[in-house]
Structure formats: structure tokens, C-alpha cells
Design a protein around this nucleic acid. Structure first.
Lengths: 224, 224
DNA sequence: GGATTTGCCTAAAGGGTTTAGGCAACTACA
DNA sequence: TGTAGTTGCCTAAACCCTTTAGGCAAATCC
């Protein structure tokens, strides 16, 4: 039997492609196995379980997004940087809807390895008798995932430097921008803006311009 | 055998409760059946399929949200109305995370009944031979779902009246507000704001105040 | 070239979805 | 109040996805 050359990374990549084609929710261990022309059980040598696969896909997407965001922001400042950054998310979501959805996949809060050990050690089940083939533990993967997330918020703060906000206004601004971008992209992807004028693209730039204006005139205390 | 008294509505309600308890993604036809102490197949007399159940839950949530939003906006204007409306979404999402997630569930774009008929009629499969027990067709349900959605955007526009925006600025503002609210609530629910100061609640009111300011000073053309 | 590792396989158990068809409990009406 | 018709829930069964256990053969390492 010829080997298919599976690996955690290749599975994540294939899963990402599949997500863009049929939707992130339809990405299943079985579907990825089919894509490789391989038995389902074979994937479990490279991936802990279904959610592990999804988290890997999320990490791929988050990393790609951070790379593009970094490239877009480089050499720009102020409104240009803001628009470029925002456009990265919107464009990515349009070209890779499945990947974008994946990037919003929060892995279920598993108890930490130590807390598991704390409970299991001394129990009746053998400690190290778990898997046959070792798959990189979720915690190290989680690190990669978290790192990508951190890159995003740092890029956002970099863009905000031009607007000269002090704390806690800057944190508020980060949260607001993140909310607008994520919210707009999500709603647009869901088709919420498809059936009324003006076009979604025009609204988008005008909204970003409004945010630029708002950041330049961030209210101190009492607005209006 | 005593009857459990199932109905489409009761299933949707039970599904909504279940969603808040275990998460919308864990809501399954099987789980709801278990909740009623009833065989799984029994539910299919009241619900077309799994997605139909989910869409009904979404409609429940969307309607509850619209009711609360209408009550919150009544008798208020300007910043007060804006904050009240925004708070409804945030509070609802915190108290009913499963329902809120459900409210964002977009039913898969099924071809309309007419287009299905257009294709199937004349084919080899009998037209009306479908179900044994008739369940309200998805299209009429979809109407209810769409109606609830419309209520939301109308409430938003009502709040915006105080700010005196003309088209297309008003549409832009509706889209921006919807994005911020949905985005913030989603990110907060995902725990994105849980691990850094300031608290999520303080950011929230300051962001809404900023939006109030922005709406009062909506830029005409060239910002900054 | 032999030992070891590792990749993919078969087998099997468990759970969710959905359809088909059946009996019993309600409802309506004479 | 009995009986016909309707409706509610059941059993059975097919299909798909997940996950674990254990096995054979290809690749790799001296």
C-alpha cells in the first residue's frame, strides 16, 4: 500500500481548503480522510480528535491572517493603515469564508494538563497508557494559537499609535475596532447586507472613515 | 402510553433552554427527545429535520430579543435609547448565551418551494408523496424568522431618528451599530475581554458613548 | 540486511439523523 | 356512549461521524 504522506500540518491545510469549499461546520475527520483517499482511523495518528483538527485549522487561518495584516500595516499609518488592516480581514473572509469561520473557533476550555494529572494520577487508570502514536499535545498547539491571537491585537495597537490615545481609551478603541471589523465581516458573510442599497463595499469604506474620524476626536468624558 | 404533549413550539422552547445549558451546537434532535423522555423518531412528527429545529429555536430567540428591544427603546431617545438598545443585546447574550448563538443561526439557503417544484415536477419522483404527518412548511416559518429580523432593523432605525442622518448615512450607521453590537457581544462571549483591564462593562458604556458622539458628528465627506 | 519505528489498515462500539410503518390513545360526531 | 377517524408516540432499520484497539507492511536506521 502506498502511503499518503499524512501529517498534522497537511491535514490542517486540507481541512482549511475543505472549509472554504463546503463550510467550516462540514469539516469532519471523515471528510478529510476521504479527501486523502484514506481510512478514517488513519487520521487519528496525526490528530487527537475532531476538535484538535478544528483547532489546527483555526491556527492556520489565524496565522495567515496575521501575516497578511502585518504586511498590510507595514509602511502605513493613520487612516491608510486602518483601512488596510480592516480590508485584510474583510477580503480574507470573502476569499476564505471557511477559514475565517475557523479563525473564530474557540477550542473548548480543557482543564490544563497539570490539573488532569492531578486528578488522574493515583487513580485506577494507568497514567501513560493513553495513545499508541504520540500526537503533539494540545497545549503546545494552543500556544501557537494564542501567539497568533496576540499578534493580531498588537497589530491593532500599532495602528492606533497614530491616534495618540492613552489608557484606558486605547483598550476601548482596540475592543471597538475589533468588534466593528469582526461584526461587519460576519454579518456581511451571513448575507445581511446583500439585499439593500448601498453596496456593502461603499458602506465599509465610509464606516472605516467614520472610525478614523472618531479616533481622531475620541471624546474625553461627556459626549454630544 | 401517556402522551408527552409535544409540539413544534414546545420543542423549540425546550431546545432554547437546552441551548443555554449546554451550548447551541450541542442541541440535537436526540438531546431534545431525551429531555422529553421520548423516542427520537417521535420528534420528526413536529419538526422537519435537525436544521428546522434549530431555525425554530433561532426564531424564538430573535423574537424574544425584538420584544425586549422594543420595550427598552419605548419612551427613550438619543443616547438613552442607544444605550438601552445595546444593553438589551449584551444582557440577553449573557443570560442566554445559547439562545443568542441560536439567533445568529442562518438557515441554509434552500431553494424556494417554487423552484423545487419547478425542478421536481415532471421528474420521476411523486410530488406529494413526501411526509406522513405534515409539519408547517419551512417557508412559513422562514417568514416568521424574517419578520423578527426586520423588527430589529426597524428598531435600530427608530433609535437613529434622534441623530438626524440622511441616506445613505443612516444605512451606514445601522450597519455600523449592528456590527459593533454583534461583534462586541460575540467577542465578549468568547472570553476575548476577560483577561485584561478595564472590565468589559466599563469599555462597553464608553464605546456606546463614543458611538453616540460619532452619530452626533457624522462626518460629511473627508474625515480627520 | 535485520531491527525498529511508523503509516495506514481492519474491526468494532457508540451516538446522531432520518424514513417507514404500526398500534394505541385521543377527538368528533351520531 | 359507541365508533370512525385522526394523531401521537413507538419499533425497526439504514446511514454517517467519532473514537479506540490491534495488526501488517513500508520506511528508516544502523
Amino acid at each position: 500500500m502506498a502511503r499518503a504522506g499524512l501529517s498534522g500540518e497537511r491535514l490542517a491545510l486540507a481541512g482549511a481548503e475543505l472549509a472554504d469549499e463546503v463550510g467550516f461546520d462540514q469539516v469532519t475527520v471523515s471528510a478529510v480522510a476521504r479527501r486523502f483517499g484514506v481510512q478514517v482511523a488513519s487520521l487519528y495518528s496525526h490528530v487527537r480528535n475532531s476538535d484538535d483538527l478544528k483547532t489546527r485549522i483555526a491556527t492556520v487561518a489565524l496565522t495567515e491572517l496575521a501575516d497578511q495584516a502585518a504586511a498590510a500595516v507595514a509602511g502605513r499609518a493613520g487612516r491608510d493603515a486602518l483601512l488596510a488592516l480592516a480590508d485584510v480581514y474583510r477580503t480574507y473572509a470573502q476569499h476564505h469564508p471557511g477559514r475565517y469561520k475557523a479563525s473564530r473557533h474557540t477550542p473548548p476550555t480543557t482543564p490544563t494538563a497539570s490539573s488532569i494529572d492531578g486528578v488522574v494520577a493515583g487513580g485506577s487508570r494507568g497514567v501513560a497508557s493513553g495513545q499508541r502514536r504520540r500526537v503533539p499535545s494540545t497545549s503546545v498547539l494552543g500556544t501557537e494559537y494564542v501567539a497568533a491571537g496576540r499578534r493580531h491585537s498588537e497589530l491593532m495597537r500599532a495602528v492606533l499609535r497614530a491616534y495618540d490615545l492613552d489608557e484606558p481609551a486605547q483598550t476601548d478603541a482596540v475592543r471597538m475596532l475589533g468588534s466593528v471589523i469582526h461584526g461587519y465581516v460576519t454579518l456581511e458573510l451571513a448575507g445581511a447586507f446583500a439585499y439593500s442599497a448601498p453596496g456593502s463595499a461603499e458602506s465599509w469604506t465610509r464606516i472605516v472613515d467614520s472610525l478614523d474620524f472618531l479616533l481622531h476626536n475620541w471624546p474625553e468624558r461627556h459626549p454630544s
